[in-house]
Design a protein around this nucleic acid. Structure first.
Length: 438
RNA sequence: UCCUCGGUAGCUCAGUUGGCAGAGCAGCUGACUGUUAAUCAGCGGGUCCGUGGUUCAAGUCCACGCCGAGGAGCCA
């Protein structure tokens, strides 16, 4: 075999090299053969291109080996870039030389036929090489980048909250425990929000962005035990301002993903783009009261004060063609730190955003209680130990202001935008109730 | 935590009334100048999840256990 000495290029940039000899460095995704032609599908992380090995173009040894390389052989292929209408990417490579970097020591477990979910999850580290999974991870990257850009461009400061925390932010039953030296137990955070509030009073506008842990024994397509959440918090913002921020933020994210991945979403993930293209301000805003009436009218038995369950959520979301904001939930259903509506103390100034098509709640947020006495009473009423919240109460003792924020779940957002059936595909290595490996 | 379904070849699955363990794909050997889930010919491939029980005989029936999937509740 000849040495591969042409310029190394990526498949994504192949169009700039038409007619030239180049070297691709990647992996053998698939292979087929037709007599004096061997077709090698080579992927390099940026794309996949068909490399055509013609018997007359290479020596006998190369031609023979090209027909016997196993799937996922790592290799360098040198050849001439040729435009070809039959190619999905418009180009293919006429091969002159192949250099095998490493041959698999055993058969690659994931063939090109159907596989069950359990098998794919066991081989998650290899499954990530598939076209579908690489597109999802690229979309995830774009979503995270657009989240950061959105806040960075608007004067927010990134504010990292701790992952090890001394106590529950909201409840106590769903926390992962970690032994912590002589101090007893620490817990993995289930929200950075309380710390974000401290940040907002220091820096004005902040966003917490990090992993979050919930030890809930939930087995549904919307749940992971470890997930990523972005939580902006803004001083001097009320609920109305919070909802304005939510919808502008989500419109921006969806727009950025469409800008960058429209083709991949449509072809590889077969996503219905018309749904995504409708995600434009203003989003419909309804009160919890109206939500209950709408669910009742749709024939589902539900009463004021009930939680809106998964099915009801879908019924409601399906009545709108874009994400819907549901605000002013019964105060009893919400965490202690929500501010009550001065016009009706039975409801909290909270707001959830429900994604269309049954993807459920992607945002939860609202205005925080800023009055010291009221907050203290709420902590007592919730049966929470006052001592654990002394620092949080300090935020009301010293320079308290109206403030609001929300949390957006990254995985649910990725799942919705990509049109996936389960959030387990939205993160490289999902952590589920009964799965900790790989 | 509860409910439902499942575990048979590398993968996806079939297996009748309890009676010799099967198919497709993948793999291997070869043919073919346009395949991209190629096609064609040939070949190899099994701890039927585990333990115990019923029976002349269990992949099949019973009990318990393990593992997985789907859903509920709860949540982002």
């Amino acid at each position: 075999m000849e040495s591969t000495m042409a310029e190394h290029v990526y498949v994504a940039d192949i169009a700039q090299h038409e007619g030239k000899q180049v070297t691709l460095k990647g992996w053998l995704h698939n292979r087929s053969s037709k007599g004096k032609l061997h077709f090698l599908q080579v992927r390099d992380g940026t794309g996949t291109i068909q490399c055509v090995v013609f018997k007359g173009d290479v020596d006998e040894a190369t031609f023979h080996e090209a027909d016997h390389l196993p799937q996922e052989t790592s290799l360098e292929v040198t050849g001439t870039v040729k435009a070809d209408k039959r190619s999905p990417i418009g180009f293919e490579l006429g091969v002159q030389a192949i250099r095998v970097v490493a041959k698999p020591v055993a058969e690659f477990p994931l063939g090109h036929k159907e596989h069950g979910v359990a098998f794919l999850m066991d081989n998650r580290h290899l499954w990530l090489r598939s076209a579908r999974q690489t597109v999802i991870q690229r979309v995830r990257h774009t979503i995270i980048k657009s989240v950061r850009d959105y806040f960075d461009d608007r004067g927010f400061t990134l504010f990292d909250a701790p992952i090890l925390t001394p106590a529950a932010c909201e409840g106590t039953s769903t926390l992962f425990e970690v032994p912590y030296f002589d101090m007893g137990k620490a817990y993995l955070t289930q929200s950075g929000q309380l710390y974000g509030e401290a940040g907002a009073l220091a820096l004005g506008k902040v966003y917490v962005f990090g992993p979050t842990f919930r030890a809930e024994k939930s087995k549904t397509r919307r749940h992971l035990t470890e997930f990523w959440m972005v939580e902006p918090e803004v001083a001097y913002m009320d609920l109305a301002g919070d909802m304005d921020l939510m919808e502008d933020f989500v419109e921006n994210i969806v727009g950025k993903v469409l800008e960058k991945h429209e083709k991949e979403l449509a072809t590889v993930l077969e996503r219905d783009l018309t749904v995504l293209k409708r995600v434009k301000k203003p989003f419909p805003r309804i009160t919890y009261d109206e939500a209950i009436e709408r669910i009742k009218a749709a024939g589902h038995p539900i009463n004021w004060g009930d939680d809106i369950g998964g099915d009801e959520e879908t019924v409601l979301a399906n009545q709108f063609d874009r994400p819907v904001l549901v605000h002013r939930y019964p105060a009893e259903m919400k965490a202690f730190y929500f501010k009550k509506d001065p016009a009706n103390p039975k409801v909290a100034l909270g707001c959830d955003m429900l994604a269309p098509e049954g993807y459920g709640e992607i945002i939860g947020g609202g205005q925080r209680e800023d009055d010291y006495d009221t907050l203290l009473a709420a902590i007592d009423a919730a049966g929470l130990p006052r001592s654990a919240f002394e620092w949080y109460l300090d935020l009301r003792r010293y320079g308290s202001v109206p403030h609001a924020g929300f949390g957006l779940g990254i995985e649910r957002t990725v799942g919705w935008i990509c049109g996936l059936h389960h959030v387990r595909e939205t993160v490289p290595f999902p952590r589920l109730m009964e799965r900790l490996t790989p």
